[in-house]
Amino acid sequence: MRVTGPAPVIELRGATFGYGERAVVTDIDLTIRAGEVVLVLGPNGSGKSTIAKGLFGLTDLLAGEVDVFGMPRASFRDYPRLGYVPQRHTLASSVTVTVAEVVSSGRLSRQSWLGLATRADRAQVRRALELVGLADRASVDVGALSGGQQRRVLIARALAGEPDVLVMDEPTAGVDIANQHGLVEVLARLVAEGLTLVVVTHELAAFADLVTRVVVVDGGRIAFDGSRDEFVATGSEVLHDHDWHHHLDRPTRWSPVLSAEGPLSQGGSRS
């Protein structure tokens, strides 16, 4: 099932990540290709977030190699292509910050040091806000938004950099079901536009219809790596103490979204 055609966008070869001397995940081999929607599953403390952070140099690479867009991570400089949505429970801070201001900071990596925000920068910020359905709330204080809306602000911030690959760490943690649906609708639209998605989560249910591939991390190692269907077939054996696989059979109300065309095909409303 796995596509072998597109070039790898992320390639880990025997990668060991950790903090200082302490390894958290060891000997990870993982190749992610353009267009995949990869779910990195695992219980809390399994090391799945450590892998995600390692892609951005936020955890130390202790052994092995990490290639991003065919280039060793250490010499990779085209930062905006690899978007990151970190795990954060709240955006409330000691200062007032609007949604648009947070999202605009995702544009910085594409701006020169002396340059001001151009018309193209502002247009991309607006587009990112529209994609996550928060255009109406651009000038609202982020602290006033719900948890689910704040996650979408973080997604929009990453989208403002126009990434080819989006790595998200626990985007649904602490988000209620209704808002999870909204979030997945947004991601489905982005995938339809060609975005490669890597989602670190311990909640499979929300993404069941979107995912093309499942990687299970357990005890700092990859315990399973296969297509969605392979995972359904073997899931019960791989995931001894979890019931994620039960959710896969349940039809969800956002299923039609996946088969629908992307938002850009709906006419000129976005221009």
């Binding site: 930062y79 905006p80 973080l154």
Partner: peptide, 22 residues
């Protein structure tokens, strides 16, 4: 004047700022 939005980004989310190459 030159650094304000970068200082803002680092102060508001250091991890994200680093991931974005700041």
């Amino acid at each position: 004047a030159v650094l304000r939005w970068r200082l803002f980004a680092v102060a508001s989310d250091e991890e994200y700022a680093q991931s974005a190459g700041l």
